[in-house]
Structures are given as C-alpha cells and as structure tokens.
Write a protein that binds this DNA or RNA. Sequence first.
DNA 1: AGCCGCCCTGAATAGGTGTTCAGCTTTTTC
DNA 2: GAAAAAGCTGAACACCTATTCAGGGCGGCT
Lengths: 224, 224
Amino acid sequence: MVYRRTQQVVKRLAARRQAILAAAREAAAEGGMAAVQIAPVAQRAHVAAGTVYRYFPSKADLIAELIAEVTRVELQAIRRAADAAPGPSSALAAAVTTVAVHVLSHRKLAWGILAEPVDVDVSASRLMSRREIAGELELRIAAAVRAGHLPAQDTALAATALLGALHEALVGPLATDDLNDPARMRDAVQTVTLLALRAVGVMDARARGLVVQAVMPARTLLGA
Amino acid sequence: MVYRRTQQVVKRLAARRQAILAAAREAAAEGGMAAVQIAPVAQRAHVAAGTVYRYFPSKADLIAELIAEVTRVELQAIRRAADAAPGPSSALAAAVTTVAVHVLSHRKLAWGILAEPVDVDVSASRLMSRREIAGELELRIAAAVRAGHLPAQDTALAATALLGALHEALVGPLATDDLNDPARMRDAVQTVTLLALRAVGVMDARARGLVVQAVMPARTLLGA
DNA sequence: AGCCGCCCTGAATAGGTGTTCAGCTTTTTC
DNA sequence: GAAAAAGCTGAACACCTATTCAGGGCGGCT
C-alpha cells in the first residue's frame, strides 16, 4: 500500500533535477539570465514546463540554486589556486588571476550571475555570491597586509573594488569580441591582475613579477 | 487655416517634456530603473499615460534620453574638475574623485543607469554612457602616461577597470547604509581614489598626497 | 496480473506592463 | 464666435511569462 521510492526512481529524480539545473546553466551561458525562462529550460532538459515546478518551488529558487552552484565552484578554484601559492602576495595574485580567467572563460554566464538585470527575488542570491567571492579576495589581501607586504587598508572595500574592476574590464559592456582571442585574453588577464595588485599597494616592479608567476598555471586554460 | 504652434504652446510642450524626463529621473533615483514605468512616471509628471507617447516613441527612448542627460552632466563635471587641476596626475585624481562623489550622491540613480538590469533596448544607451565616462577617464590616464607620471599601459582597459572598481565599491550590492553617513562617504571616496591611483601606477606616497588634494574641492558636496 | 498513487504533461490561467486609440478638451485661426 | 487642428485622456488591448492543475501514464506494491 505504502508507495516508496525505489532506488532507481530516486536516482532518476536526482538526475532530472540536475538536468534542469544544467539546462538553466546552459541557457544562462548562451543568452544571459534573460534566457533562463521556464519553458525553454524545460525543453532543453527534456521535460514539460510543469515538471520544473516539481523540483523547484519557483523560478527564483531555480536561479538561486544555479548561482549558488556556480559560486561554489568559483570559490573552490580560488582557494585551490591561492593555497598553492608560495606566499601571501602570490596567493593574492593567484586569486585575482583565477577570477579573471574564469570570468573570461564563461563571460555570459558570469555576466548573468553577477550583473545582469533580474527580478528582485534573485538579487539576494546574487548579493551573497558577490559577498562570498569578495570575501575570499579579502582574506588574501588581509593576509598580505598582515605579512607586511601591503600597507594597512580597508580590506573589504579593496576586495570589492577589485572584484568590480575585474568584472567591468572583462565581462562588462567593454568585452568586445577581441577578448575571444586567446592571446588577447592572456594580455587582458595580465593587465587586470597587474592593476589589481598595484591598487592594493604592491610596488610596480614586484607586481609585474607576481603577475607572470600567477598567469603561468592558467596557461592551459588560456589556450597558450 | 494653418495651425501654428504659438510661442506659449511651444513652451508648454517643452516644459511637459522636461517634466516627464524629470519624473523618470526621480523614479529612477528612488526605485531604480525598475521603477521607471510609464504609468507611475506619467502620474508623477501630472499627465496621462498616453501623453508620454506624444513625447517619446517608446519607453526605451525615454530611458535612453534619461541616460544621455545624466551622462552629459556627469561628463561636464568630470571635465570641469580635471581641467581645474594643476597637472596630469592631479587631473586624474580629480576625475576619479568626481565620479566617486557623484555616484555616491545619487546611488540609486547611478545604479539604475549603469548596472541595473533592463531590457536589451536600453543596453545600447547604457553602453554608450559607460564608454563615454570611461573614455573621459582614459584621456586623463593617457595624459599622465605621456607626462611620464605613469608607466605605459593599456589605457582603455585601465579606465574601464577603474570605472568598475568605483561602481562596485560605491554603488554595488556592497553599499550598505553606512555609506549614507557623510564621514564614511568621504572615507570611501578617499579609499577608492587611492586604490584607483595606485592601480594605474602612482606610487603609494604620491597617491596619498593627490587624494587629499582631490577630495578638498568636493568637501562641500560631502557635507564636511 | 491488477490496483494504487506518484510523476509528468502541456494547455489554460493569471498578473503585470507597454502601447494604442476613439473621444474629449484646448488652442488657433478667420 | 465657430470651425479646424492639435493635444490630452485613460480605459481597453496586446503580449509575454511564470505558475497551476486536471488528466494520462508509468512504477511499485501485493
């Protein structure tokens, strides 16, 4: 009498949920958040529109989860890169470069998640995403300050400003097509990283050295 | 037989057009672009919804003109501040500070014009606005480079990054209420200006001096 | 096999906002 | 003062999407 989900069904449900999320991510990557509409996403995930609502209470929840997922991956990447660096300054450079490279690699998606216009419902998720990533940058700035590599400063504001500089320079309305060229991408990443490091107080010469070091691990990602 | 607009009517039409634009600006300043809806704007301007369409072909056109107007004012302010500065570095500092102060003073409006989500129709206007303001910053950066005050660099990218840093730090989701306090506002403007100057290669010590100089003229605006 | 209930479907619903237009008011001209 | 044209009104329309729900079908239980 009692209906119980068999293991097989549980698996299928989970897979379907993932499919919907993936479809949403793809849509966002192709056309920005505006393209994340229930009907198209459902079609892409091979389910009916109504089915989406069996997995997510509302579109806002779907997007919130999408943002959270992308943010989680991003944070992991930043931490991995920074933790592998030999010192605080290198860690900061690595963190900045990581953000820059990721953002460049998934321009539209990043734009949608970080800046594109949306309903107020999702702004909270987006806010948290920004806060988390900025927070991660702040950690590295603070560590460098503690180590005496940087002058004392408002680390929170600095981290936010850095994030803004990265986004605007790499995904904002600027981002003309020439940023699709791997060589230009690397140039842009280097330039922006250099700006960021100098902004928080790294001396020009030292910053240039750090940039070269930081960009090396990202070489493959940048197709060089 | 031929109906001709009398001077009085011409005046009234112009006034009404301005009233509609002003209403749109107020709405944007209060609730962001999302609040710029035809019906509310019309009501605020004391006209009927349909009347708006006698002055602007569409909502997108109305917003485009709003953006253009605000941008024009902003550009003037930047130029005035920069041209009054004694040298290229000071001019750059003045330009950055001006943007920072303006953006802080009209947070919501700036957000709406520069970053808030909107339909694609207005994105072109917004793009141009950003380009123009970034271009103005770029001029000052390039001048400082030519004068030998800054290292050679990709001035366009630098200007864009600076603009992004300013926006994100001052109007972005960060902007908690504490930025409404005049003292904090001044601190934030100084901090961000300092970051910006260092980013493009001004040495820390010199940058601090420039910041103090640049913030002085803005004292009144910041209520100190 | 056969019943029961969950899951899925997709067309219909609902709500919100830009845009239109037939009728009314104001202004101009003679 | 009256006709004609322009301007204004605001309710109706149009469109776009998120969300719902009655009904079909498949999966799990005995």
